[in-house]
Computed example of a mutant assay.
Amino acid sequence: MSQEGGGRFKPGRSGNPKGRPAGSGEVARVRAAMSANLPRIIEALEARALEGDTGAARLLLERTVAPLKAVEFSQAVAMPGDGLAEKGRAVIEAMSAGQLSTEQGGGMLDALAKLAKLIEADEMERRLAALEAKQ
């Protein structure tokens, strides 16, 4: 039956506005069936992991233990000179010498680049104010 020519449903409206009830799908049924056996499944995985099954150990650890994150430590870096380029070179040298990680050094270089843009904006503002004052 066509929806356009006097069918049961109006265009733009669902025939089932409430949708399928939550938990009535196939995945929900499988989960419900497995839930009764879940403690035994976990125990079996644990036993296999303890026997040396690295796949079982990995599965258990991935699902129960939060992944470790790298910890960054603060490191003072001597930045000689007044120029931003000199400071950037000092950061790159510190990375090359192993004093800074590439992530730390990259963060410092990004900060120097942002500082350069701020200095440039300040300089433009000063120049504009000077030009306007002359007029």
Results as ranks from 00 to 15, higher is better:
1 M>V: 04
2 S>F: 02
2 S>G: 10
4 E>S: 11
4 E>H: 00
4 E>T: 08
6 G>L: 10
6 G>E: 09
7 G>P: 07
7 G>C: 09
7 G>Y: 06
8 R>N: 10
9 F>I: 13
10 K>Q: 11
10 K>W: 11
11 P>V: 09
11 P>D: 12
11 P>A: 12
11 P>G: 11
12 G>K: 04
13 R>D: 09
13 R>W: 13
14 S>A: 09
14 S>C: 01
15 G>S: 11
16 N>Y: 06
16 N>V: 03
16 N>W: 02
16 N>A: 08
16 N>R: 05
17 P>G: 01
18 K>F: 01
19 G>L: 04
19 G>K: 03
20 R>C: 07
20 R>T: 09
20 R>Q: 12
23 G>M: 02
24 S>E: 14
25 G>N: 15
25 G>R: 02
27 V>K: 06
30 V>S: 09
30 V>D: 07
32 A>V: 06
32 A>K: 09
32 A>S: 09
35 S>N: 14
39 P>I: 11
43 E>M: 13
45 L>A: 10
46 E>F: 10
47 A>C: 05
47 A>L: 13
48 R>H: 04
48 R>I: 02
49 A>F: 06
50 L>D: 12
51 E>F: 11
53 D>Y: 05
56 A>H: 01
56 A>V: 01
56 A>Q: 03
57 A>G: 08
58 R>D: 04
60 L>N: 06
60 L>H: 04
61 L>A: 06
62 E>V: 02
62 E>H: 01
62 E>D: 07
62 E>Y: 04
64 T>R: 01
65 V>M: 00
66 A>G: 01
67 P>R: 05
67 P>L: 06
67 P>Q: 05
67 P>M: 02
69 K>I: 08
69 K>V: 12
69 K>L: 11
69 K>D: 07
71 V>K: 08
71 V>P: 03
71 V>M: 03
71 V>H: 00
71 V>N: 00
72 E>D: 03
73 F>W: 07
73 F>G: 00
77 V>L: 09
78 A>K: 05
78 A>I: 02
78 A>T: 03
79 M>H: 07
79 M>V: 11
81 G>P: 02
84 L>M: 09
84 L>G: 05
85 A>K: 07
86 E>W: 02
87 K>R: 08
88 G>E: 05
89 R>T: 11
90 A>R: 01
90 A>P: 00
90 A>E: 08
91 V>R: 00
92 I>V: 13
93 E>S: 10
94 A>P: 01
96 S>L: 09
99 Q>E: 12
100 L>K: 04
100 L>Q: 03
102 T>H: 12
104 Q>R: 06
105 G>F: 03
105 G>N: 03
107 G>T: 00
108 M>A: 12
109 L>M: 04
110 D>Q: 12
111 A>P: 00
112 L>Y: 05
113 A>P: 01
113 A>Q: 09
113 A>W: 01
115 L>Q: 13
115 L>N: 02
116 A>V: 12
118 L>Q: 15
119 I>V: 15
120 E>Y: 14
121 A>H: 14
121 A>E: 15
122 D>N: 14
125 E>F: 15
125 E>D: 15
126 R>T: 15
126 R>K: 15
127 R>S: 15
127 R>Y: 14
128 L>W: 14
129 A>N: 13
130 A>E: 14
130 A>I: 12
132 E>P: 07
134 K>I: 14
135 Q>D: 12
